[in-house]
Design a protein around this nucleic acid. Structure first.
Lengths: 221, 221
DNA sequence: GCGAATAATACTGTATCCATAATTATGTTT
DNA sequence: AAACATAATTATGGATACAGTATTATTCGC
């Protein structure tokens, strides 16, 4: 059997991914209307795959489809943040709990390597890369937890959080604190204390909410 | 501002809903391929809105889109159930917790009325209606919890659970036990003991997993 | 001059059409 | 007779065309 290439991605998937990146990069701001015709001209495609891509993004909550009115990038309110962060704290706490119980030696080595990157990027004040390594760390913990559905839900919610411009901005002022929390998290996982890992992760996420709130206050003034 | 008719549903939404109902009714079994052309002929529509509807269902996890191969109703494995139920227990537990803290007198009256229906349908062995009232009860608790995102996540996961034929089958043998658990749940919420409500709901969901497992065992033999 | 109504324009929603890839059937060869 | 290869048919993916509605602009009336 020839190693058939596994599921060549369809055009609408590529378009969805490109739009995701543009939305996450805040190139298209929340509240903005997405002009189908303009995008088809921009990407050099027809409206069919674009519209299908928008349906996918709508299901993810990144855009809102208003019948006969068009497609708008979802706006996240302060209340949404107050609802999503505690939920994320609950879910990622569970991830940490399960990951701690299931982690093999190789898994520990993995997240330790990622944590080492965090230490370096923090020391060198490489905020962007720190942000990425941070995501990789959380992603890895979710994977180790071994619950596909838990991972999926967490990642979907994280996508929504990334809509907030303040979310990425807030990372900067929180670099040292975040690093400290990650040290405690890694220690908890390595010690095998699942309950502790859960608590540390939970509080780590909630601290993220506080940082966004502070950034918001600074931003407004 | 005239009371503009609020978002007349687009055709793809109606089609998505009709397909959802057919899938939940196990009229289209998991693993089955969905023939686009046959459905367009059946519904008397063109392929465009149907394809958009399928993208939506795919995002919900009800169907799986394989590029160049077609669309298949998602098959849920035993492992999926082992992953989803504990997650639901965690989330619905949180719903019960928050709902207990936030419930006003009118909310209590609401769920008490729904519970009363449960009692009646159980007494009359009206399984189908019991199943519906049960859903309404959980739905109401989620609404009272006041967290839109929590509610959304729980409802998305429940949709996936409804793919399982055993899920509805298992309800029958569990009628009495389920009713007993609901009595305890209602009592906990009315007493205002959020922690207790959380625990009771958590265990109630996990008991549902056990029932599915038992049904599965019976089904196999 | 301002407001309301009507017309024109533009964009969303749906249908049809074409191309490409996958599957199935038939024929040939071993 | 069975297996493999090739050809034909069918269905999916993408593009284009058409219809209906919403928005905006212009004109008419007050």
């Amino acid at each position: 059997m020839a190693p058939s290439r596994i599921a060549q991605t369809a055009l609408y998937q590529e378009v969805a991914e490109r739009l995701r990146l543009r939305i996450f990069a805040h190139e298209i701001l929340p509240g903005t209307r997405i002009d189908e015709q303009a995008l088809t001209a921009d990407y050099g495609i027809s409206r069919t795959p674009l519209r299908e891509a928008l349906k996918v993004l709508a299901a993810e909550g990144l855009v809102t489809l208003v019948p006969r009115r068009g497609c708008f990038v979802t706006e996240i309110s302060e209340q949404d943040l107050d609802e999503i962060f505690p939920l994320m704290a609950l879910l990622e706490g569970r991830c940490a709990f399960e990951a701690t119980r299931r982690a093999k030696a190789a898994d520990i080595a993995d997240i330790e390597a990622i944590h080492q990157q965090l230490e370096e990027f923090a020391a060198n004040r490489q905020i962007e890369r720190f942000f990425e390594a941070n995501q990789a760390f959380h992603y890895r913990v979710q994977a180790i937890s071994g619950n596909r559905w838990l991972k999926q839900v967490v990642q979907d919610l994280r996508k929504v959080l990334k809509l907030t411009r303040l979310f990425s901005l807030s990372a900067e002022g929180r670099l040292i604190q975040s690093l400290t929390e990650h040290r405690a998290l890694l220690a908890a996982i390595k010690s095998g204390d699942a309950g502790l890992a859960q608590t540390v992760m939970h509080d780590h996420i909630l601290a993220g909410r506080q940082a966004v709130a502070r950034t918001h206050a600074t931003d407004e003034s």
